[in-house]
Design a binder for these strands. Structure first.
Length: 289
DNA sequence: CATCAACCCTGAGAGC
DNA sequence: TGCTCTCAGGGTTGAT
């Protein structure tokens, strides 16, 4: 399931033409010849027929990412793509036969290259709009936003009397974390998924912010995680600490990893490293800068 | 404000 | 072998 690192990896490959940097398959500068929607519900906005018409003639500009959304700028509109569970984008020459069972949207460029949106479970969505804020407006800060320092993060997290796991999954709190990186970050920060956010002290929330950034950085460095049907060369799955490692040894202490359901999501954690009870010896390193 | 469940989907894996 | 059942998961929606 694509989260921030996977979406970032895809954005980079659309810009540079593949993870390896093949310029012949990058999309900026290409002009749309035609578009076809193969599964109507993939298009959230506008109507599929208008989507197809409006894209024709527009040229790709900047390709970026906001949270888990891909932002593909065109002359007049921005194409927003959310991959949800199983979405994937391919850039390939028209000659390659469309033998893919689950292609949902095709965008053909004038120079014989096309962009294909493939999505097994049909949860992915696209918006073609000149008002991207209407779609992205509720997103929280980017985890790497430079204005998000330890103080700001602690202030934010103190406002919520929710459990950490659902809070971190809430895209209006922080944009980009999904189930994998949330579990990984909580383990790295040695925090139990059910801890109430507002009860974190400064040292704990700082640790959490740092852990979030570290696991996301690791994910990006490894081109994301490749699991389920979506394989795109990522390798982060090889270094999962807790995610989908139920019953296996915690890399830190060797205890068996537990699994429970939190907010309808499978949640993996080490019962020893991430104890709900704060260790009695926990120091109060309160006097921060 | 927070929690919970249903919904959208498919295919993998279990059980029979 | 092949059928049926359960489950996973991001985000939205509506109820409590």
């Amino acid at each position: 399931m694509p989260e921030l690192p996977e979406v970032e990896t895809i954005a980079r490959s659309l810009r540079s033409g593949g993870v390896g940097g093949r310029n012949d398959l990058s999309i900026p500068g290409r002009r749309v010849k035609s578009a076809s929607v193969l599964w109507d519900r993939t298009i959230a906005q506008p109507q599929p027929v208008e989507f197809e018409k409006r894209l024709v003639g527009q040229t790709v500009g900047e390709v970026g990412r906001r949270g888990k959304f891909l932002t593909i700028h065109f002359d007049r509109d921005i194409l927003l793509v959310h991959l949800r569970m199983s979405g994937d984008l391919r850039v390939e020459p028209d000659e390659i036969q469309l033998n893919q069972t689950h292609d949902r949207v095709l965008v053909s460029f004038e120079d014989g290259i096309r962009l294909a949106f493939n999505d097994t479970r049909k949860f992915g969505r696209m918006w073609l709009t000149d008002q991207p804020e209407k779609v992205l407006g509720n997103l929280g800060l980017e985890p790497f936003d430079p204005t998000l320092d330890a103080e700001a993060f602690h202030q934010q997290i103190s406002r919520h009397r929710r459990q950490l796991k659902p809070l971190l999954l809430d895209q209006s709190f922080l944009a980009g974390l999904g189930n994998i990186y949330t579990d990984e970050a909580l383990h790295l920060a040695r925090l139990h998924p059910l801890v109430i956010a507002s009860r974190l002290n400064f040292e704990q929330s700082s640790r959490l912010l740092q852990a979030i950034r570290q696991v996301l950085s690791e994910g990006i460095q490894r081109n994301g995680a490749s699991i389920d049907w979506v394989y795109r060369g990522g390798e982060f799955q090889n270094v999962f600490r807790v995610y989908q490692r139920t019953g296996q040894a915690c890399p830190v202490c060797g205890t068996f990893i537990n699994r429970m359901v939190v907010g309808q999501r499978g949640t993996h954690y080490c019962p020893v490293c991430q104890s709900l009870e704060q260790p009695a010896a926990q120091r109060q390193e309160g006097a921060h800068g």
